[in-house]
Amino acid sequence: MMVNIRVNGKQYKKDIEPRLLLVNFLRDELNLTGTHIGCDTSNCGACTVLMDGKSVKSCTVLAMQANNHEITTIEHEDPELDAIKDAYVEEQGLQCGFCTPGMIIESFYLLKNAGDKEVDDDYIKKNLRGNLCRCTGYRSIIDSIKKANKNIKEREEIHVSR
């Protein structure tokens, strides 16, 4: 069946089997291998991508369900996403790195949707519930997200003052 999926701003039209999962569509059809397959059972969140700006587990979404929708993956070029990646490096928010693409996309989502809420430990933990990391113990991940939040806010202030 034909699908039309916009991924990271680029439109793709492909003929696929209906049973193809979104994560396999991204990795095998588009060669965007930044999105990882972890547990493959909707638990670990390594496969997290954004669909129309909302985070979903791409191992539990059919590529057909993404037809005519917009997907954002870790490969997306965006200054805010870059700021989060930098913060993960600065705060060592990863060890083996396998969960990291999902962690970063979910971090991107939770920071974008924080609104007036303070990005504190509670908010981060609550919103990172769908992402598992078996290396870091999460402390450095939480610190990375706080650092990213600070960096993004500071950058916005610089933009405003200029």
């Binding site: 985070s55 939770l110 769908g130």
Partner: peptide, 9 residues
């Protein structure tokens, strides 16, 4: 229910 990603879908 579950986690943010599952609730979104």
């Amino acid at each position: 229910v579950a986690d943010p990603q599952v609730r979104n879908m």
